[in-house]
Design a protein around this nucleic acid. Structure first.
Lengths: 211, 211
DNA sequence: TAATTTATCCCCCTTATAGGGGATTGTGCA
DNA sequence: TGCACAATCCCCTATAAGGGGGATAAATTA
């Protein structure tokens, strides 16, 4: 059973030669080949490929816009970006959107096939520069975050709160009175600009506020 | 000005040959060479290298444990993991901890230097398989998550809850009675094995449960 | 030294939430 | 045809949580 490919590539010549190249391989078969992604949804729903090769720079709709569309239809469909220039920003946006890797158009036919194999096996081919960007946004996510000026005690209380603990429990854990704990919470709510514990938890966890 | 390197590597022979190799290069100079990471903090504070080459498998303390220690001293110090086996899990843990890339011990001297250059330039050398793992955990597509069997309506209610909304507000947003909303919440709490909304929010957001 | 901050505690009052029931309607599946 | 289930709504009760006060001792800062 060959892996079914759909290609979106605006350059007519390149599109054709890609098709010929891939169809001569023993593992892949091109079942669709289109110059733009405006009908991507219908095409994917209709053809149900295993893997999509997606050019980034295309007239009209950007290839990146098609990523969420395809992944929503079936997250199992692999998406390999195919770009002429090593534009870090675009490739990074592609990967954020859910692409499974990318290859440059200057890549040799052999390496193209290898990259496809890699994607199929669950790998995500990408250059070190891009990998670094992904890594960076992966752990140091948002460093430019607001300082809410919580005191050390308030921070302690908040740490328990975001675990879902009750006020009573937090108080007992910190060996302070229930009312003291509530005082801290009141101050926390004021400082975080929220009105209740639920909002505080949601804010801290959703905004990845470090404590 | 040469890039100052510190190496942590338990194999004596390898450590020595690494040092000789790197010292013959025109860009790098090895200023420290140690068989274990137990004194990593003191060493880094003292020597202040630009880049650290870190073996993962070492007797006593694992090389990975040294990553946060080094990064806390100076996040600008690059860390390149140096491993014998392509152990996905360990490499992944290393990258999560803050490593800037990794190379295998079987890597040729030329490629080792290239990888160091890559790290210096801000790249993060890694294999496609690792890149995929990073990508995956990056957009939280943890597939092996528990299915709590929430109904579509319960999911809707929960989506509002984790934004910190009150029961009354959720009810009004969904055009249902307050008591209906509460019924859904009761069922949600049962299914998630929690006792209150705060716990539910904490659980969903902390465990990155997809809704 | 005086003012400020922090952490601690207490009161009252109101509202929100949780837990325990129970009931009705429609839908889909066996 | 009947059953299970999802979604809707209601009641009662107890506890938890939030908002508004205020107070004190210790430490820090101006």
């Amino acid at each position: 059973m060959k892996i079914k490919l759909v290609i979106f590539e605006d350059n007519h010549q390149l599109r054709k030669s890609l098709e010929i190249l891939l169809n001569t391989s023993e593992s892949y078969v091109v079942i669709g080949n289109f110059p733009h992604v405006s009908k991507a949804k219908e095409i994917i729903l209709d053809l149900r490929p295993h893997l999509v090769i997606l050019d980034i720079d295309m007239p009209g709709k950007d290839g990146i816009t098609a990523i969420p569309v395809i992944k929503e239809i079936d997250p199992e469909i692999f998406i390999l970006m195919y770009t002429q220039f090593e534009d870090d920003e675009k490739i990074f946006r592609s990967l954020c959107a859910g692409a499974d890797g990318y290859i440059l158009k200057k890549t040799s036919p052999l390496k193209l096939i290898l990259a496809l194999d890699e994607v199929r096996k669950g790998g995500a081919p990408m250059s070190p520069a891009i990998a670094r960007k992904v890594l960076a946004s992966f752990h140091t996510s948002v460093k430019d975050k607001i300082n809410y000026n919580l005191t050390s005690r308030e921070t302690e209380v908040l740490k328990y709160l975001i675990k879902g603990c009750s006020v009573k429990y937090i108080a007992s854990e910190l060996y302070i009175a229930y009312e003291t704990c509530r005082s801290h919470l009141k101050n926390i709510y004021t400082k975080l600009h929220v009105n209740c514990g639920k909002e505080a938890i949601a804010k801290v966890l959703a905004e990845k506020i470090e404590l």
